[in-house]
Protein backbone atom coordinates (compact mmCIF):
# COMPACT_ATOMS: atom_id res chain seq x y z
CA UNK A 1 0.00 0.00 0.00
CA UNK A 2 1.17 3.49 -0.87
CA UNK A 3 2.33 5.59 2.01
CA UNK A 4 -0.09 8.14 3.37
CA UNK A 5 2.20 10.93 2.27
CA UNK A 6 2.12 9.82 -1.33
CA UNK A 7 -1.65 9.51 -1.23
CA UNK A 8 -1.94 12.96 0.24
CA UNK A 9 0.11 14.38 -2.59
CA UNK A 10 -2.08 12.66 -5.17
CA UNK A 11 -5.24 13.98 -3.53
CA UNK A 12 -3.89 17.48 -3.76
CA UNK A 13 -2.99 17.17 -7.43
CA UNK A 14 -6.33 15.58 -8.37
CA UNK A 15 -8.14 18.35 -6.53
CA UNK A 16 -6.20 20.92 -8.52
CA UNK A 17 -7.09 19.23 -11.78
CA UNK A 18 -10.72 19.18 -10.69
CA UNK A 19 -10.65 22.90 -10.04
CA UNK A 20 -9.22 23.58 -13.47
CA UNK A 21 -11.76 21.40 -15.26
CA UNK A 22 -14.55 23.06 -13.29
CA UNK A 23 -13.35 26.48 -14.36
CA UNK A 24 -13.08 25.29 -17.96
CA UNK A 25 -16.61 23.92 -17.78
CA UNK A 26 -17.97 27.26 -16.69
CA UNK A 27 -16.02 29.19 -19.31
CA UNK A 28 -17.21 26.78 -22.01
CA UNK A 29 -20.80 27.14 -20.83
CA UNK A 30 -20.77 30.90 -21.16
CA UNK A 31 -18.98 30.79 -24.51
CA UNK A 32 -21.47 28.21 -25.72
CA UNK A 33 -24.35 30.55 -24.93
CA UNK A 34 -22.70 33.34 -26.86
CA UNK A 35 -21.95 31.03 -29.77
CA UNK A 36 -25.57 29.90 -29.84
CA UNK A 37 -26.68 33.51 -29.96
CA UNK A 38 -24.35 34.08 -32.91
CA UNK A 39 -25.89 31.13 -34.73
CA UNK A 40 -29.37 32.52 -34.08
CA UNK A 41 -28.32 35.97 -35.30
CA UNK A 42 -27.48 34.64 -38.76
CA UNK A 43 -30.92 33.12 -39.25
CA UNK A 44 -32.71 36.23 -40.63
CA UNK A 45 -30.10 36.67 -43.36
CA UNK A 46 -30.03 32.99 -44.26
CA UNK A 47 -33.82 32.75 -44.28
CA UNK A 48 -34.24 35.81 -46.49
CA UNK A 49 -31.63 34.49 -48.84
CA UNK A 50 -33.24 31.07 -48.99
CA UNK A 51 -36.57 32.69 -49.85
CA UNK A 52 -34.98 34.73 -52.59
CA UNK A 53 -33.26 31.74 -54.14
CA UNK A 54 -36.44 29.71 -53.91
CA UNK A 55 -38.32 32.49 -55.63
CA UNK A 56 -35.73 32.90 -58.38
CA UNK A 57 -34.95 29.27 -59.05
CA UNK A 58 -38.61 28.40 -59.46
CA UNK A 59 -38.71 30.87 -62.31
CA UNK A 60 -35.64 29.58 -64.03
CA UNK A 61 -36.04 25.91 -64.66
CA UNK A 62 -34.05 24.23 -67.39
CA UNK A 63 -32.01 26.57 -69.55
CA UNK A 64 -32.12 29.38 -67.03
CA UNK A 65 -30.03 27.29 -64.67
CA UNK A 66 -27.24 26.68 -67.12
CA UNK A 67 -23.92 27.96 -65.89
CA UNK A 68 -25.19 28.68 -62.39
CA UNK A 69 -24.56 26.58 -59.33
CA UNK A 70 -28.06 25.17 -59.60
CA UNK A 71 -27.03 23.22 -62.66
CA UNK A 72 -26.36 19.54 -62.09
CA UNK A 73 -23.09 19.00 -63.90
CA UNK A 74 -21.89 15.78 -65.52
CA UNK A 75 -19.47 13.81 -63.37
CA UNK A 76 -15.98 15.26 -63.69
CA UNK A 77 -14.48 12.64 -61.38
CA UNK A 78 -13.47 15.31 -58.92
CA UNK A 79 -15.28 16.73 -55.92
CA UNK A 80 -14.38 19.14 -53.15
CA UNK A 81 -14.92 18.54 -49.47
CA UNK A 82 -14.91 21.32 -46.92
CA UNK A 83 -14.23 20.14 -43.38
CA UNK A 84 -15.11 22.31 -40.39
CA UNK A 85 -13.55 21.42 -37.05
CA UNK A 86 -12.55 23.29 -33.91
CA UNK A 87 -9.02 24.59 -33.42
CA UNK A 88 -8.58 22.95 -30.06
CA UNK A 89 -9.25 19.66 -28.34
CA UNK A 90 -10.48 18.76 -24.87
CA UNK A 91 -13.96 18.39 -26.25
CA UNK A 92 -14.59 14.69 -26.00
CA UNK A 93 -15.06 12.83 -29.26
CA UNK A 94 -16.19 15.85 -31.27
CA UNK A 95 -13.25 15.97 -33.66
CA UNK A 96 -12.78 12.24 -34.01
CA UNK A 97 -16.45 11.82 -34.92
CA UNK A 98 -15.92 14.29 -37.73
CA UNK A 99 -12.76 12.53 -38.87
CA UNK A 100 -14.63 9.24 -39.05
CA UNK A 101 -17.35 10.84 -41.16
CA UNK A 102 -14.70 12.39 -43.42
CA UNK A 103 -12.98 9.04 -43.82
CA UNK A 104 -16.22 7.34 -44.75
CA UNK A 105 -17.09 10.06 -47.23
CA UNK A 106 -13.75 9.86 -48.98
CA UNK A 107 -13.98 6.08 -49.29
CA UNK A 108 -17.50 6.35 -50.68
CA UNK A 109 -16.35 8.85 -53.28
CA UNK A 110 -13.34 6.74 -54.22
CA UNK A 111 -15.65 3.79 -54.79
CA UNK A 112 -17.51 5.99 -57.25
CA UNK A 113 -14.17 6.56 -58.97
CA UNK A 114 -13.82 10.17 -57.87
CA UNK A 115 -10.96 11.97 -56.25
CA UNK A 116 -11.58 14.32 -53.35
CA UNK A 117 -9.85 17.65 -52.81
CA UNK A 118 -10.15 18.88 -49.25
CA UNK A 119 -10.43 22.32 -47.67
CA UNK A 120 -10.16 22.87 -43.94
CA UNK A 121 -11.58 25.29 -41.44
CA UNK A 122 -10.05 24.70 -38.02
CA UNK A 123 -6.71 23.40 -36.86
CA UNK A 124 -7.84 19.92 -35.85
CA UNK A 125 -9.22 19.18 -39.29
CA UNK A 126 -6.26 20.77 -41.03
CA UNK A 127 -3.86 18.56 -39.07
CA UNK A 128 -5.93 15.45 -39.74
CA UNK A 129 -6.22 16.07 -43.48
CA UNK A 130 -2.56 16.97 -43.83
CA UNK A 131 -1.44 13.96 -41.78
CA UNK A 132 -3.53 11.49 -43.75
CA UNK A 133 -2.56 13.04 -47.10
CA UNK A 134 -6.00 14.09 -48.35
CA UNK A 135 -5.09 16.65 -51.05
CA UNK A 136 -5.48 19.59 -48.70
CA UNK A 137 -5.92 22.65 -50.94
CA UNK A 138 -6.56 25.54 -48.58
CA UNK A 139 -7.04 26.14 -44.91
CA UNK A 140 -8.23 28.76 -42.46
CA UNK A 141 -7.38 28.34 -38.81
CA UNK A 142 -7.68 30.35 -35.62
CA UNK A 143 -10.86 32.11 -36.65
CA UNK A 144 -11.80 32.87 -33.06
CA UNK A 145 -15.12 32.53 -31.30
CA UNK A 146 -17.10 34.92 -33.45
CA UNK A 147 -15.63 35.03 -36.95
CA UNK A 148 -16.88 37.56 -39.47
CA UNK A 149 -18.13 36.46 -42.85
CA UNK A 150 -15.15 38.18 -44.51
CA UNK A 151 -12.73 35.99 -42.58
CA UNK A 152 -14.12 32.77 -43.98
CA UNK A 153 -14.44 33.87 -47.60
CA UNK A 154 -10.90 33.01 -48.68
CA UNK A 155 -11.17 29.24 -48.46
CA UNK A 156 -14.75 29.23 -49.71
CA UNK A 157 -13.82 31.28 -52.77
CA UNK A 158 -10.87 29.02 -53.50
CA UNK A 159 -13.19 26.02 -53.65
CA UNK A 160 -16.05 27.74 -55.47
CA UNK A 161 -13.84 29.25 -58.17
CA UNK A 162 -12.88 25.73 -59.21
CA UNK A 163 -16.55 24.91 -59.56
CA UNK A 164 -16.91 27.82 -61.98
CA UNK A 165 -14.02 26.54 -64.04
CA UNK A 166 -15.73 23.17 -64.22
CA UNK A 167 -13.11 21.26 -62.26
CA UNK A 168 -15.39 20.10 -59.46
CA UNK A 169 -18.78 18.71 -60.22
CA UNK A 170 -19.87 18.76 -56.60
CA UNK A 171 -18.90 20.43 -53.33
CA UNK A 172 -19.64 18.92 -49.94
CA UNK A 173 -19.39 20.17 -46.40
CA UNK A 174 -18.84 18.21 -43.21
CA UNK A 175 -19.32 20.02 -39.93
CA UNK A 176 -20.59 19.38 -36.47
CA UNK A 177 -24.29 20.08 -36.27
CA UNK A 178 -25.45 21.58 -33.00
CA UNK A 179 -28.51 19.52 -32.06
CA UNK A 180 -28.56 20.44 -28.40
CA UNK A 181 -26.18 20.83 -25.51
CA UNK A 182 -25.66 17.09 -25.20
CA UNK A 183 -25.83 16.04 -28.83
CA UNK A 184 -23.58 17.22 -31.65
CA UNK A 185 -23.74 15.24 -34.82
CA UNK A 186 -21.28 15.23 -37.73
CA UNK A 187 -23.35 16.36 -40.68
CA UNK A 188 -22.71 16.02 -44.40
CA UNK A 189 -24.22 18.68 -46.62
CA UNK A 190 -24.15 18.99 -50.38
CA UNK A 191 -23.38 22.61 -51.21
CA UNK A 192 -23.03 22.49 -54.98
CA UNK A 193 -25.12 21.94 -57.03
CA UNK A 194 -27.39 24.06 -54.89
CA UNK A 195 -30.61 22.29 -54.18
CA UNK A 196 -33.24 24.95 -54.74
CA UNK A 197 -35.18 25.57 -51.57
CA UNK A 198 -38.94 25.58 -51.75
CA UNK A 199 -40.29 29.03 -52.33
CA UNK A 200 -42.27 29.82 -49.19
CA UNK A 201 -45.00 32.28 -50.09
CA UNK A 202 -47.33 31.40 -52.93
CA UNK A 203 -47.24 35.08 -53.83
CA UNK A 204 -46.59 35.27 -57.52
CA UNK A 205 -45.15 38.72 -57.60
CA UNK A 206 -43.94 40.15 -60.84
CA UNK A 207 -40.49 41.36 -59.94
CA UNK A 208 -38.49 43.82 -61.89
CA UNK A 209 -34.94 42.51 -62.03
CA UNK A 210 -32.03 44.85 -62.11
CA UNK A 211 -29.81 44.05 -63.91
CA UNK A 212 -31.35 40.69 -64.88
CA UNK A 213 -32.69 37.55 -63.34
CA UNK A 214 -29.73 35.47 -64.48
CA UNK A 215 -27.19 37.94 -63.24
CA UNK A 216 -28.81 38.22 -59.83
CA UNK A 217 -29.02 34.47 -59.53
CA UNK A 218 -25.39 33.98 -60.48
CA UNK A 219 -24.35 36.51 -57.82
CA UNK A 220 -26.73 35.23 -55.23
CA UNK A 221 -25.82 31.56 -55.40
CA UNK A 222 -22.15 31.82 -54.38
CA UNK A 223 -23.22 34.14 -51.56
CA UNK A 224 -25.79 31.55 -50.50
CA UNK A 225 -23.17 28.81 -50.41
CA UNK A 226 -20.82 31.06 -48.45
CA UNK A 227 -23.59 31.78 -45.98
CA UNK A 228 -24.15 28.06 -45.50
CA UNK A 229 -20.46 27.56 -44.81
CA UNK A 230 -20.49 30.51 -42.44
CA UNK A 231 -23.43 29.09 -40.55
CA UNK A 232 -21.76 25.69 -40.36
CA UNK A 233 -18.69 27.32 -38.85
CA UNK A 234 -20.74 29.15 -36.23
CA UNK A 235 -22.62 25.97 -35.45
CA UNK A 236 -19.33 24.11 -35.07
CA UNK A 237 -18.17 26.69 -32.57
CA UNK A 238 -21.34 26.23 -30.53
CA UNK A 239 -20.88 22.45 -30.80
CA UNK A 240 -17.29 22.72 -29.68
CA UNK A 241 -18.11 24.64 -26.54
CA UNK A 242 -21.02 22.43 -25.58
CA UNK A 243 -18.92 19.31 -26.15
CA UNK A 244 -16.14 20.84 -24.12
CA UNK A 245 -18.56 21.79 -21.38
CA UNK A 246 -19.85 18.23 -21.15
CA UNK A 247 -16.35 16.76 -21.32
CA UNK A 248 -15.15 19.06 -18.57
CA UNK A 249 -18.20 18.32 -16.44
CA UNK A 250 -17.40 14.61 -16.68
CA UNK A 251 -13.77 15.29 -15.87
CA UNK A 252 -14.77 17.30 -12.80
CA UNK A 253 -17.02 14.48 -11.68
CA UNK A 254 -14.24 11.91 -12.19
CA UNK A 255 -11.87 14.09 -10.22
CA UNK A 256 -14.37 14.24 -7.36
CA UNK A 257 -14.86 10.47 -7.40
CA UNK A 258 -11.13 9.96 -7.45
CA UNK A 259 -10.61 12.31 -4.51
CA UNK A 260 -13.24 10.35 -2.58
CA UNK A 261 -11.57 7.03 -3.30
CA UNK A 262 -8.15 8.43 -2.50
CA UNK A 263 -9.38 9.95 0.75
CA UNK A 264 -10.72 6.55 1.71
CA UNK A 265 -7.42 4.82 1.02
CA UNK A 266 -5.60 7.65 2.77
CA UNK A 267 -7.69 7.09 5.88
CA UNK A 268 -7.15 3.35 5.62
CA UNK A 269 -3.40 3.84 5.32
CA UNK A 270 -3.43 6.23 8.26
CA UNK A 271 -5.43 3.79 10.35
CA UNK A 272 -3.15 0.91 9.38
CA UNK A 273 -0.13 2.96 10.37
CA UNK A 274 -1.65 3.80 13.75
CA UNK A 275 -2.69 0.20 14.34
CA UNK A 276 0.78 -0.94 13.45
CA UNK A 277 2.36 1.57 15.76
CA UNK A 278 0.03 0.65 18.65
CA UNK A 279 0.66 -3.04 18.18
CA UNK A 280 4.41 -2.43 18.03
CA UNK A 281 4.29 -0.44 21.25
CA UNK A 282 2.05 -2.93 23.01
CA UNK A 283 4.13 -5.87 21.87
CA UNK A 284 7.22 -3.99 23.00
CA UNK A 285 5.59 -3.37 26.36
CA UNK A 286 4.54 -7.01 26.54
CA UNK A 287 8.11 -8.10 25.81
CA UNK A 288 9.40 -5.85 28.57
CA UNK A 289 6.77 -7.14 30.99
CA UNK A 290 7.76 -10.75 30.17
CA UNK A 291 11.42 -9.99 30.80
Amino acid sequence: MASSREIKRRIRSVKNVGQITRAMEMVAASKMRRAQRNVMATRPYADSMRNLIGELSNRSIGMGRKGTMLEVKPDTGKVALIVVTPDRGLAGSLSSNIFRRVGRFIIEQQQLGRTVDTYAYGKKGRDFLARTGQNLQAEAIKLGDAPKLEQILGVATAALSRVQTGEYCEVYLIYSEFVNTLVQRPNLKKLVPVEAPESSGGSRLDFTYEPSQEEILSELLPRYVETQIYQAILESIASFYSAQMVAMRNATKSAKDLVRDLTLSFNKARQAAITKEVSEISSGAAALADG
Partner: peptide
Protein backbone atom coordinates in the same frame (compact mmCIF):
# COMPACT_ATOMS: atom_id res chain seq x y z
CA UNK B 1 -41.21 55.01 -51.68
CA UNK B 2 -44.10 53.00 -50.29
CA UNK B 3 -46.12 51.06 -52.87
CA UNK B 4 -43.11 50.64 -55.12
CA UNK B 5 -43.33 47.88 -57.72
CA UNK B 6 -41.69 44.61 -56.65
CA UNK B 7 -38.01 44.87 -57.43
CA UNK B 8 -34.93 42.75 -57.03
CA UNK B 9 -31.59 44.36 -57.51
CA UNK B 10 -27.91 44.09 -56.74
Amino acid sequence: LPRHAPLLSI
